[in-house]
Design a protein around this nucleic acid. Structure first.
Length: 493
RNA sequence: GGCGGCAUAGCCAAGUGGUAAGGCAAGGGUCUGCAAAACCCUCAUCCCCCGGUUCGAAUCCGGGUGCCGCCUCCA
């Protein structure tokens, strides 16, 4: 059966459109990366995880994907932060790039194929600005260079705004004209001020404006026209709008065929913002919750939809991950090192992968894909614990086939990258540390309970079970012996 | 004021014309010395409200209500 056609919601057209690669079998994607003046927060993490998953899925589908995600390391906010910290702006940015890389690695995000920096792209930026001036789309004024929005007819085609509304709707905000011809014109190049990083240019010393770096970097690494461009919803205007204006005015070509925008993450309905002091760093979140559980949580909502960060949802995600990993561990135990021969399988293992594929092909329906995963793991558990057929070899073969499907799914979604027993143990260790559980006491309790059980003193055995449960430790008797896990919620009784 | 989005069970969340995926929680059951895990069953006659189109709408159209985002740095 042919794989389902991929359709993607394109912000430009406000509807889902078929994915048609510029070059058959290949895709170029540019995702607007972070401005590195602080630590990456969970909102950033959500967006980058969405695109990470999208890239993984596209590769799973066989596309050769070139994934570019930039670092904006020259910017007003960086300069401000550096001045406050009495540091060199470029050094401060370099520091936060390292922090970003450490944090996103911890979240299991794939490194992009290229991660260009503004400070490494200055010649290209200057070149594109020169081209814009030569084409009459931009003008120099003093040491600044501005893009003249009224000369570019396609301006605001992405955000569907109206230039006059923008000007008149500015409200109380001061429309600073400076040396601009129009208040909506935006800076491509800013003349150097004391204490700011600057580079030589035909307009004197200065530095790039916001927006222009993405036009230069995407053209440099993906060409003047490429397939997919991603970013957060908030980047539609002005950032992406300005990117389009600059790039298309310079090249005369369409910048990108499909614009994708990820929804926001909020904190139980409250917007996360610095002024409210409620920004949650990814680093801190990862102290609280397992990386894959956080990733799973991100995938529980479609990437374009708003997502609310809450302890309850996070706990649910971790419970679910535990189910998945416990299942995989059990299956590993069952099939490890065994040969079940050749022959027919029970049911149709492939159908779960088809379901996942169909969900993902339809504008990357993450929750739909997770639904397919539920079916897959239910089947895995049924075959392990309550096989509906007597043929053990067939059950074994089917388990192997299903486990293989789970591995393919993990490639497409970026889940289950750990060894099941490792994941489960690591999670328990983290809970033990967080709750301050005395492991020696748990081990002693289990040993004492075992003695009581052997002596058929079940009253004592149950007393010990209750005692451990009060410490949030759940005892599990299995054929392989007694193990234990930590309850994430307080016992209700 | 301009532009855009969202409203589906106790909670989270898919579904955009053909009669409500999935998960969490809850209740019952199988298994177990007891548990846990797993599995099975139950859990929205209905998808914010009012009209309309249609053989048929949660899904399309009109109106209303509520919430949110962007328009200023922001993923």
């Amino acid at each position: 059966m042919a794989p389902p056609d991929i359709r993607i919601f394109n912000t430009m057209q406000q509807t889902k459109v078929p994915l048609v690669p510029l070059n058959p079998g290949k895709l170029g994607i540019y995702v607007c990366g972070p401005t590195v003046y602080s630590w990456v927060h969970i909102g950033n993490a959500r967006t980058f995880t969405s695109f990470d998953t999208i890239v993984r899925y596209l590769r799973f589908r066989g596309f050769e994907v070139r994934y570019v995600r930039n670092y904006t390391d020259v910017d007003d906010k960086i300069i401000k932060a550096a001045n406050e910290a009495k540091e060199d702006p470029i050094a401060l940015a370099a520091h936060f790039i390292r922090e970003f890389e450490a944090d996103t690695k911890a979240l299991h995000l794939l490194p992009p194929d290229v991660s260009p920096k503004v400070s490494d792209t200055i010649p290209e930026i200057v070149a594109i600005i020169e081209k814009l001036i030569a084409r009459g789309a931009a003008y120099a004024a003093g040491g600044d260079v501005y893009f003249e929005v009224r000369k570019y007819p396609g301006y605001l085609k992405l955000s569907k705004k109206n230039l006059d509304d923008l000007v008149s709707g500015a409200g109380e905000r001061e429309l600073v004209l400076d040396s601009k011809k129009d208040p909506m014109d935006f800076a491509l190049w800013k003349a150097a001020k004391p204490g700011e990083p600057s580079w030589d240019s035909p307009w004197g010393k200065g530095r790039p404006g916001w927006h222009i770096e993405c036009s230069a970097m995407s053209a440099k690494y993906l060409g003047e026209t490429f397939d997919l461009h991603g970013g957060g919803l908030d980047l539609i205007f002005p950032h992406h709008e300005n990117e389009i204006a600059q790039s298309e005015a310079a090249s005369g070509k369409t910048l990108c065929n499909c614009w994708m925008h990820g929804g926001f993450l909020d904190l139980e309905g409250a917007k996360m913002s610095k002024s409210l002091g409620n920004v949650v760093r990814l680093r801190d979140a990862l102290q609280q919750v397992d990386a894959e559980a956080l990733r799973f949580f991100f995938l529980t909502t479609h990437y374009r939809q708003a997502l609310s960060f809450s302890d309850k949802q996070l706990a649910d995600a971790e419970t679910r991950m535990e189910y998945f990993y416990e299942t995989l561990r059990k299956v590993d135990e069952r099939v490890e090192g065994k040969d079940f021969g050749q022959g027919a399988l029970h049911g149709d293992p492939e159908r779960f992968l088809r379901e996942l594929d169909e969900a993902m092909a339809d504008d990357f329906n993450f929750p739909g894909a997770l639904g397919a995963l539920s079916g897959l793991f239910n089947e895995l558990n049924q075959l392990t614990d309550k096989p509906p057929v007597k043929d053990k070899a067939m059950v074994g073969r089917t388990l192997l086939a299903l486990r293989d499907i789970a591995k393919k799914a993990s490639l497409a979604l970026g889940l289950f990258e750990d060894k099941p027993s490792d994941w489960l143990l690591r999670r328990r260790d983290r809970q033990v540390a967080r709750l301050g559980i005395d492991v020696a006491k748990v081990d002693a309790g289990i040993a004492a309970r075992q003695e009581a059980r052997v002596a058929k003193n079940f009253q004592e055995a149950d007393r010990i079970r209750a005692e451990l449960k009060a410490m949030r430790v759940e005892i599990m008797d299995t054929p392989a012996g007694t193990s234990w896990k930590v309850l994430s919620e307080l016992p209700t009784t």
